[in-house]
Design a protein around this nucleic acid. Structure first.
Length: 266
DNA sequence: CGGCATGTTGCGCA
DNA sequence: TTGCGCAACATGCC
């Protein structure tokens, strides 16, 4: 699920469920998700608090509490927040729950995470994972001049730079793959080799890829097998020119691209 | 059984 | 110091 658009959707959900709500009970028995932290500290720090803000930066979420404390949440690979009635048990891997009361109505917000790569961190102040994040494409916007400077000062593969959370926050393998295809840039091209036009193309590509995922093309999402241009489609024809899509590994991640219309800069 | 997966971190080697 | 590659983390699905 989670790259920037999915995390933004989670933020909107949480904002709707939790803003102004008082936490009547909080539980997370999964010590592995609390890195750092512990089940007792989680319950103690959250119980009785009121949620005053719900923010997102890159792939991180942050709840601001009335005593100045915060709850940070990273969805990892399979994390998601849902809401259920207080007495309903989730069918899937539930790892934490916040039982809240808002305008006199009780509800329960649950954190589900099959693979448990996610994290929940309760802290008094900001945490380094949050403060060291780079520019957020949605919240801060991206300017071609800024991106060009970031790319041209690095020799690493452009796809690697796009996914560097300390440069730009929120871009993962899917968005980077899609944006590079839209911009017709080979993912292996060194950042500093890109032309000015490649960079403007990338800015547009990122925007399009993010907006596309932000749309709720919800109904037949399950069966439709994800409607990506090239992500997950190695071996299939390029939607633009029909060339067989190739895949390479960059920074340990599979990168699909069209060897014909995506230009490789040196 | 092996391979793969939307994420991050840490280690070892240029 | 920078830049990689790669294994590891925990779990499910082909």
């Amino acid at each position: 699920m989670p790259e920037l658009p999915d995390v933004e959707k989670a933020r909107r959900d949480l904002d709707g469920w939790l803003l102004g709500a008082k936490i009547a009970a909080a539980r997370c028995e999964d010590g592995y998700l609390l890195r750092p932290g512990s089940a007792p500290a989680f319950a103690r720090s959250l119980t009785g608090r009121t949620v005053e803000s719900v923010d997102r930066r890159g792939k991180w979420l942050r709840l601001g509490l009335d005593d100045g404390g915060r709850l940070f949440s990273h969805l990892g690979m399979t994390g998601e927040w849902v809401t259920l009635a207080t007495d309903v048990r989730s069918q899937r891997a539930e790892r934490a729950r916040l039982d809240v009361v808002r305008r006199g109505r009780a509800s329960s917000v649950r954190y589900l995470d099959t693979r448990r790569f996610g994290r929940l961190v309760v802290a008094k102040d900001e945490i380094a994972e949050w403060t060291s994040l780079g520019r957020d494409p949605l919240a801060d916007g991206i300017e071609a001049s800024w991106l060009r400077e970031e790319l041209t000062r690095r020799g690493r593969a452009v796809k690697d730079i796009l996914m560097d959370q300390s440069v730009m926050a929120g871009i993962g393998n899917i968005l980077a793959t899609e944006a590079l295809w839209i911009a017709r840039v080979d993912p292996r091209s060194p950042g500093r080799a890109l032309h000015a036009r490649d960079v403007t193309g990338l800015v547009r590509g990122l925007r399009r890829a993010i907006d596309r995922e932000l749309q709720d093309h919800g109904p037949r999402r399950a069966e439709g097998e994800g409607d990506f241009f090239v992500y997950g489609r190695a071996g299939e024809p390029c939607p633009r020119d029909g060339t067989r899509l190739t895949s390479v590994t960059i920074g340990g991640r599979t990168s699909v691209f069209c060897p014909t219309c995506q230009v490789r800069r040196r």
